[in-house]
Write a protein that binds this DNA or RNA. Structure first.
Lengths: 225, 225
DNA sequence: ACAAAAGTGTTGCTACTACACCCATGA
DNA sequence: TCATGGGTGTAGTAGCAACACTTTTGT
């Protein structure tokens, strides 16, 4: 049973919704293989990483300087031949970033790190197109069955902001009356006394997600539109 | 960035429902670490395994002599210290076996391979108790949102057989009128002209799962009870 | 005729969809 | 006063939970 050593990487699917568009973070590869192709941020798991989650967190931080984001393991890819350097098993992670936090990214090595609209992806290294397709499916599912969408919004947001996130990810329009009814009825939003003034029209009320209220619900609500 | 080599294993959570009880397949370890503890079947990924799925299939076959079963990747575990031999990343798999096929298992090295009721597990090696807990959660979810339950039943089954599978996995009783109504209404069962005679009482009609009919449905049915 | 499991309907309620107009604000 | 996005209600429908008795068979 002598076997070539296997290498393990974590790759991160970092999503954000910016100006109503769902985008994913990609890096331009500096070395072969796939030199100067776009690829998912990620890298090898090291002894310093106590857990796979920690490795993903570290890799994401190295690219974006953002920490404390929503991070969740998705799926592992390990087909032979997916990396020309040898057997590589990649554990993929879903990360959800808030638009407000994205400025920070610029402070990292700006060259070769960019947000790409999910509908206009460039050619990708390795099997990363396949990994993104899988992750996108999971993301659509997650916002319908978990409060994951709030990880893409600032602490205070309007109902319109929330709806924009759902529409960007699900890729279709939603009736705003039904949308608001479901979220307001779910009892997981705390209405604030503040409003958001965006232009010369009626200001929108701000809300916060209430994690404790969510946890107290007898059954998990479903946000299917 | 010199790093100890990482090893990758696949471990299989093989479930079956026998006499109305949900059971999982465990093996008694022959070597250290955890010698003679019970553990999940599995082993290292080798060069001969073209994919991780193939590695899981191979490992399962080696323990049970069963092939062509439902097999699906669940989650990867890679905390430092979970294996005293070094950094080991384990990709866990869910396998669903039909009661009828289980005889075959005896033909494998009988010593140290056994089915354990999920509610009466022995002490387990490594972090396998945690892996099983995770897999069980996923299994409960899967039978409510996918036709996975049919992978635990023979090709021909009665509605009672199907209900027994749901009750064993969900671990609670279900109203049989509502249960039958939902499945008969879903349009995914083909009623056969045969019946199953089990004793001195009314014979039950046999059904088959119709995969094509399931695929043709406009939206996925939900089997929540 | 009896024991055992198979099989069957209804009612009330909840939750969803579809749909169009008034409100508040700054310019 | 106008332009802009914020915010609201209802009616019809579909699907679910709760609930108990009759049917078929072998002995």
């Amino acid at each position: 049973m002598a076997t070539e050593p296997v290498k393990v990487t974590v790759d991160i699917l970092a999503f954000a919704v910016q100006q109503g568009v769902l985008e994913i973070l990609l890096v331009k590869r500096k070395y072969d293989p796939f030199k100067s192709s776009w690829a998912l941020p990620g890298g090898f798991v090291t002894d310093a990483d106590k857990t796979l989650d920690a490795a993903a967190e570290r890799e994401l931080f190295e690219e974006t300087n953002v920490s404390r984001v929503y991070l969740e393991q998705l799926y592992s890819f390990g087909d032979q031949g997916r990396d020309p350097r040898g057997r590589v098993v990649t554990v993929s992670y879903l990360a959800l970033l808030r638009e407000e936090e994205l400025e920070i990214k610029a402070s990292s090595d700006a060259s070769g790190v960019a947000w790409w609209p999910i509908k206009e992806l460039p050619a990708l290294a390795f099997d990363h197109a396949e990994i993104i397709a899988y992750g996108l499916k999971r993301l659509k599912y997650k916002i319908e069955y978990t409060p994951a969408a709030f990880s893409l919004l600032p602490k205070k947001f309007t109902l319109r902001d929330l709806q924009v996130v759902y529409e960007a990810i699900l890729d279709h329009e939603i009736d705003n009356r039904n949308f608001r009814k479901k979220f307001l009825g779910a009892g997981i939003l705390k209405q604030l006394d503040e409003t958001s003034q965006e232009g010369s029209f009626r200001p929108a009320r701000l809300y916060e997600f209430s994690e404790p209220d969510f946890e107290k619900l007898p059954d998990r609500p479903v946000f299917v539109f």
